Simulated scan of single mutants.
Amino acid sequence: MALESLSEHAEAQLAEIELLLSMFPSQDELEVEPVAYAELRAYVEGTADCPPDTRPELCIKIRTHTGYVGSLARCGESSRAQHTRLVAGLRSHLCESCTGEVCVLSAVDWLRDHTHEYLELDTAANGTKAIEAVETLSAETFTRLWIYSHHIYNKSKRKNILEWAKELQLTGFSMPGKPGVVCVEGLQAACEEFWARVKVLTWKRIMIRHREDVPLDLTTQSDSSLRRFDGFDETAFDPHGSRGNHMDLGQLFQFLSERGCSQIFQLYFGVEGR
């Protein structure tokens, strides 16, 4: 493989891993082999001349109502036969849809959608309780996603963000410009659907900077009691700059503070707001 192709492939690998780390900030959900990850980062950033000998190994854990299930490494939650079928199904999916491409995100999406099917195959025979489908779990979880983009200028994307949030009954806000900020909150399934649509648009850089997940007791609690925003709107804060694409971040901090979200400012920008 040419050096330029090696570099581009390494950059694509690192970008996907960093996106996954933003989506799964807890080691209870995602484990990355640290040495190979550090070597990959060093090569991409130019502090190492040679690409790493091995690719970073990932362990993605899919959450069920009984806990976390290791999807790529067999654990006590899955039998050997279940694990074998799961890996075979994943390989078949990747052969059909990801030939020659970096496709970690596609693999994760497939695992989220199909892991429970393979874990449920043997439940009738062994008498154990069937694991609930991912969609059922999502319906009982309130989620808030804090999304960061290098910039949000495009009118079509801005329209999509507004329309999709309202279609999925999500509340929050979108701040266009550079950088771009989007917050959506509501039932987990709706938030995941919103992110699935947004992330495949063409972006210079976009990621989930932070996420909040709160299990709901549907008998005593509704998702509306946890919402910090009324409706979903595009919000601007004194646009300025030659293109009118920079916002007053002090006003953004005030906006977040009024809704009990002031801590998010430092997560986005690395400094305390004021």
Results as ranks from 00 to 15, higher is better:
S222N: 06
F142I: 00
R205Y: 09
P56A: 09
Y153E: 07
V182G: 09
V214L: 12
N126R: 05
V69G: 10
L216W: 07
S79C: 06
S26M: 11
R74S: 09
H150I: 03
G177E: 11
A190C: 13
A139M: 04
T220M: 13
Y148W: 14
S262K: 14
T115R: 04
V198E: 07
H83L: 09
K166Y: 02
G244E: 03
T66P: 10
R91H: 04
R41P: 04
P51L: 09
A73C: 08
L3I: 06
C50R: 14
Y118N: 03
K199T: 07
Q254R: 15
F232M: 05
E33M: 11
Y118S: 03
T64F: 11
L145N: 00
A36R: 13
L86Q: 06
Y118K: 03
L162F: 06
S242P: 05
A15R: 14
E57F: 02
G127M: 08
L58H: 10
A38K: 15
N245G: 03
M23A: 14
L168G: 01
R158G: 02
I131K: 01
T54H: 13
S262T: 08
A88W: 02
S224N: 13
S149L: 06
G46H: 11
E8M: 06
S71G: 15
F194N: 08
V134G: 02
P51C: 10
A133T: 02
K61R: 14
S174D: 11
T143A: 14
Y153A: 06
S174H: 11
G241Q: 06
C75K: 04
L218F: 03
I161T: 10
H150A: 04
K178M: 05
H114P: 01
V44D: 09
H65I: 13
Q266L: 14
I264Q: 12
R80Q: 13
S174M: 15
L6F: 02
A2D: 10
C50N: 07
W110I: 05
A165Y: 08
H210N: 09
H65A: 10
V35A: 13
I152G: 02
H151R: 07
Q263R: 15
V32P: 04
S22W: 07
Y68S: 08
P52H: 12
T128P: 02
R63G: 09
C98G: 08
S138T: 02
H210Q: 12
A12H: 00
H114C: 14
G172Q: 09
T202C: 00
S222T: 15
C59K: 15
I152Q: 00
Y68W: 14
N245F: 11
L226K: 14
V87R: 13
E185D: 04
K178H: 08
H150R: 09
I62C: 15
I208E: 15
G100F: 12
T141K: 06
R80M: 10
I206R: 07
M23T: 03
A38N: 15
F237G: 10
E33P: 11
R144L: 02
L201N: 07
H9I: 03
E39P: 04
E163T: 11
